[in-house]
Design a protein around this nucleic acid. Structure first.
Lengths: 347, 347
DNA sequence: GGCTGGCACTCTATCCTGCGGAGTGCTAAA
DNA sequence: TTTAGCACTCCGCAGGATAGAGTGCCAGCC
């Protein structure tokens, strides 16, 4: 219990806050004199030094070398965002203009692009938004089109007239009439249900009542299964990567390159974003906390967005560890809400 | 006629070649001593200096400052690629492994991605490939699906079972039977023709024979027109952007940023690539020749690729002006041929 | 006991300096 | 026409001095 937060005097906390504030502003190690002036506590630099010494012992700050000022550590930032941070509420005008911007978009895909652009534009960091999972989209109807031989084109229409194509290979050739029957059957059975429901219903039917289904129904079920299989289009949209080029701590070309490569390969990014989908609030990864080397010296602030309580995806920003968390967090939060609301409207 | 190539002695040409060779290798201004050794002409540095002086007068080289070596200018590179360059033929093993790599892909989209990856991987520059234009894809069939009210979903199947969706708004509501009639009519009329043909035929029909068409036919024509309208999906695929981060001349973060922004906005890039689609061979933009500021200090080597003599798109690489043109050119050339061949196979 | 001023010390960044290396242009000789 | 030599220029680097910022510690003060 020795480095519990209760160990930290009010004054020390204030100083840590002031230090991080200042460091976030100009990226230079903060010295005792500066901090004495900044903190507004009317203390001498010497006193400040003593407190800083305590903070260093707790691992919240460190100095890059003797006789440089102090710099917050990852744990420092962590303590800061967990217990010290007062987020700045977003003013209504800003929210309004964001809502306006989103309201211009029509398709979910465009909405996501727009949200990503908003995030990067406002925060001047890189914005990232995963595409809405289709899991809870509504099954509207499905049609089958015979292409050639055993190739069948399936067309799935979901909720807001989103259309998806998939080419299936069937075991035997089906006549147009058979295909028509199959789609009629499925449309009748599943129209208006959400895709997740449809899948479970499908599995259930196929296992339990196989015996009293006629061959047409079996065909239909099989094809529907293929259509819905791995329907989650795992992908995300990103905007403003180049914003990150402006930060000193990333001017190390090699680091920047790793980061950009990671953005391009997408795999690790998706993994990381996936971790946020199950928490229902803002999630913050600071520095190497994410466990992904690509984000060394970087932080991510993310939040899931949802419609009707159903989480559809995750959005957030990526930037240097030294970012203005108090400003960024409410922006991410608001964007998540607004995107959810906008998606809701279009449905 | 004073700076015609005939003005340039054999020796001077040899030197320019050697200078560019050397400069491309290590990016340092080349001095007379080095060049004297390199050129293999058994001349003294002093003589080399005289020749360099001539080259400088012609605008083919310049020195960044007094008493630095010489560096090729844009005109120097231009003269080099136009009249001096001997491309290194690609060895068969390399071509074979490229062909192999491409043969693994199934869809045109994947092929394009793969080609882009090949270009960037082999050249260590950024590879870019425009998506094949659909202009000359074959019309296979079209189907219409009534969504709701006057909303109709059109499904266009082209050549290699590529599927495209488009949602149309019609003036009046159509029954499924009417839609079926319309698609039957269009399929009969146009199956097997290429899309460009279909469009012109469509326009022709609509203007000339409007009088003796029944209303179903008019409907069909109108809908087909909407489907084909602006069918060119203008887009391109890029790989290996981060390769460009390794070059000194782009370490200026600001320049790099402009470049990346340009890649992301895509518009100017497409414009530039479009210029290459009408030339039937390799096209080379050096430095600011392209007229696009984003490519300052960069060059592009591009070639159209085609199937059956029909140009489908453009591919190429983008890198610093100081690139190994003799190595890059045959690679771009080969990739264009191979991509064309691969696309042909899949059709 | 906590706060403060003072002091010695350390480390960095910056500027200046001098010097060697590389390269040039010019000139005169081969 | 080529070459060698020479004077000159400029860059890059290493060394040294200096200023500035900051630290830790100690002794005194409230």
């Amino acid at each position: 219990m020795s480095n519990d937060s209760s160990d930290l005097s009010e004054r020390a906390q204030l100083m840590l806050r002031a230090l991080i504030d200042r460091y976030v502003r100009d990226g230079q190690p903060v010295g005792s004199r500066t901090l004495a002036r900044e903190a507004g506590l009317d203390l001498s630099p010497a006193t400040v030094r003593n407190v800083m010494s305590d903070l260093e012992a707790l691992g919240f700050v460190c100095s890059p070398h003797t006789s440089a000022g102090r710099v917050p550590t990852v744990q420092g930032y962590r303590f800061f965002v967990d217990t010290l941070l007062k987020v700045q509420p977003l003013d209504n005008r800003a929210i309004h203009s964001m809502r306006l911007e989103l309201s211009l978009e029509q398709t979910p895909k465009d909405l996501v692009e727009s949200a990503s652009g908003l995030l990067s534009g406002i925060t001047q960091l890189a914005g990232v938004v995963t595409l809405p999972s289709q899991e809870h989209a509504l099954f509207k109807r499905v049609e089958f089109l015979r292409l050639s031989g055993t190739q069948v084109l399936a067309i799935l229409v979901t909720g807001e007239d989103e259309v998806q194509n998939r080419i299936l290979s069937t075991e035997k050739e089906h006549s147009p009439a058979e295909l028509q029957q199959a789609s009629n059957y499925l449309n009748e059975l599943f129209a208006g249900k959400d895709l997740a429901e449809v899948r479970t219903a499908l599995l259930h039917e196929m296992q339990e009542t196989r015996t009293n289904m006629n061959s047409m129904m079996v065909t239909a079920m099989h094809m529907a299964d293929q259509v819905l299989e791995k329907n989650q289009n795992e992908d995300f949209v990103m905007a403003g990567q180049t914003n990150l080029m402006g930060f000193q701590e990333l001017c190390d070309i090699d680091k920047l390159r790793k980061l950009f490569d990671a953005f391009n390969t997408k795999r690790d990014m998706l993994h990381l974003l996936d971790q946020c989908i199950h928490s229902d609030g803002i999630q913050i990864f600071i520095g190497d906390e994410s466990g992904y080397r690509m984000l060394d010296e970087c932080s991510m602030v993310a939040a899931p967005y949802s419609v009707d309580g159903q989480v559809l995806g995750v959005l957030g920003v990526i930037g240097p560890t030294r970012m203005a968390y108090d400003r960024v967090i409410p922006i991410v939060d608001a964007t998540a809400r607004l995107l959810g609301a906008a998606l809701n409207q279009k449905e």
